[in-house]
Design a protein around this nucleic acid. Structure first.
Lengths: 345, 345
DNA sequence: TACAAGCATGTTTGCGCAAACATTCCAATC
DNA sequence: GATTGGAATGTTTGCGCAAACATGCTTGTA
């Protein structure tokens, strides 16, 4: 096919040294060199030394593409997150890549833009690259995504919420229990009219679970029940600020807001600063998640702490365990949550 | 080698359909199927239709690993950033992956932890995976990194600062000019004693450029010059807060702080809130970068706006241009900066 | 009618490596 | 001394695909 004389080629020719080049220099077979790199304990100390010297001499860099083709392992794990520009997902990415990289795995990262169809496209792209495993950041998927993952027969971890109908493995926490705990805290502080700012619940089990917890707490504690006390909006500072204002206009008697994301809560809190409203004096504000600067604001944000980095680490570990044939103790891991009660509520 | 009868294999056997399976169903050669997928204009409409039908029937997913081995193209671009959990780099990642994904490329992302040796390890890992291009997030590298990249003969983009000694291509801006502009703004507002909080300059040309601009501005505008007015610290909220306090203790006459990162500035600003110091009345605060929530704080942060997402997009585009044989107009692109004068200074 | 030109399609080969199988060699055992 | 077992190393083959080259077929033109 191509002109490839079987001689040491200069590094400047664009022809990188291959396993056979190392083998020739080391006076060993290619197979022994390959083993020296992957399973050094199966090779004599003498051979190991000769291989090391030959690699240093040739500047050989193993070609993981060819290795993947023949071993049917790419050491690649795909990760789908809603958006890379949100610190909670950045923490998950950091945890996951740290565990993967320590084992010579790399992550392929894609942001779905919070759109299920985007997730399906990313999964297809990752499967085309023959990723050894896939991590998803929600538990709601298109039929196409589920089918593709089931056909691929690779380890899959869903994260973010516990689910009754997992594809394979799950690392999550109970959004319902966490939101219920925060509502309990607010009610315990004497708040009787509490507003709720969250994501649209349609097709979003996590958002639906948080909202359901709100409704249940309203009923359980005998709180004010009114449609205008709850708002669905995107998770950004501006939306949080606007939602706060709208709730307070319709219900001036509101004394607390539970914002089901950290950025919505911070947006609301900063809006209060702008208007000179005392927090928590005039209105208390509680958030959800703790990856941003909520702890540093004045007043510091009361929120729900989710171990986002741990989620990434556990997900990666479960994928690795399965790939390396270790038994998975529990296919569904609950990492739990913690109320971070600070100043704002 | 393996038992692989040349018959349609069931999806449940773990044997995914290959190009030849599609070819058999479509009654075409494997090569025509391959072309129909990659260069559809070179194939008849009839053949395209048969291929499409056969792919739908078999559920074929092209194996990009095998494709990469034979085409010597992985459609993978490596990106090294200091840390994934900083919004300025998240913006660059978002810009880069958006451009890459539109062309069926994926990014391999690694965080160096602000350590040059970490960068070298990541570059080695990316080269082992035969990435088609590499993007680095600084212009300072180990000798090993430079040598490895030069031997690999692939397009490389350095980002973040303009440099006199590029490896290949650069997308950056002048940290010196940007910092000088901000100092000019502060001096123009009448501040005569200005503190500076930045990163350690040793081995960090960007930090050194910002600091040099501060020194030059102090001299040019005849400002107070004192060692205790400048502090080197990490880029986090707490460090920013502590640095502010230390400068004010030693120099109570200071009226403005220039923090050479957004999070240091926000840390300082929030510390002022905590202490009840008016900003900018008691002390003015200016930052650098605009990817976080500086615009939303009360008072809103005056800062330098760097188009971080554009940096990611341009870097990806330059890599793609080179890979696809298009001429690069300028190997060093200056994306510029903009002063965002808001309330805090 | 002959033939060039170009398009659509087919055949052969090998990318660089590791799985599977084969061989060699040495020490321990009887 | 013959046999066995196992460790170290070697040989053959093919992973799934695309590059390079080859062939056939249509159309237009002299």
């Amino acid at each position: 096919m191509r002109d490839r004389p079987d001689q040491p080629r200069a590094a400047d020719s664009g022809n990188a040294p291959r396993l056979t080049d190392v083998a020739r220099v080391a006076r060993l077979s290619a197979m022994t060199v390959s083993r020296a790199l992957r399973e050094p304990e199966k090779v004599s100390a003498e051979a190991r030394a000769r291989v090391a010297a030959a690699i240093a001499e040739t500047g050989y860099v193993p070609d993981l593409v060819a290795s993947s083709l023949t071993s049917r392992r790419t050491r690649l794990v795909g990760l789908v997150i809603p958006t890379i520009t949100a610190s909670i997902y950045a923490a998950t990415v950091a945890g996951m890549t740290a565990v993967l990289r320590a084992r010579q795995f790399e992550a392929l990262i894609g942001d779905s833009g919070y759109v299920l169809d985007g997730e399906e496209k990313l999964v297809a792209a990752f499967l085309g690259r023959r990723a050894d495993g896939i991590v998803l950041s929600n538990v709601e998927h298109t039929g196409g995504t589920r089918r593709a993952l089931e056909r691929a027969r690779i380890p899959v971890v869903e994260t973010g919420n516990l689910t009754a109908d997992p594809i394979d493995m799950v690392v999550g926490f109970s959004n319902h229990a966490a939101a219920l705990a925060m509502m309990g805290h607010l009610a315990g502080r004497g708040h009787r009219t509490i507003g709720f700012i969250g994501a649209a619940v349609a097709g979003n089990p996590q958002a639906a679970d948080r909202r359901r917890a709100y409704d249940e707490a309203v009923a359980a504690h005998g709180l004010t029940r009114a449609p205008a006390l709850t708002i669905e909006c995107p998770s950004d500072l501006e939306a949080g600020a606007k939602a706060l204002v709208r709730i307070c206009e319709r219900h001036p008697e509101v004394t607390a807001i539970f914002a089901a994301s950290e950025v919505r809560a911070i947006g609301a809190l900063l809006e209060c600063q702008r208007r000179g409203w005392q927090v928590p004096g005039r209105i208390a504000i509680a958030g959800f998640n703790d990856a941003g600067m909520g702890a540093w604001l004045v007043p510091a944000l009361t929120t729900v702490r989710i171990p986002r980095e741990e989620i990434g680490r556990r997900a990666a570990q479960m994928i690795l365990d399965r790939l390396e044939g270790r038994a998975i103790a529990e296919a569904q891991v609950d990492v739990g949550f913690e109320l971070a009660v600070r100043e704002s509520a």
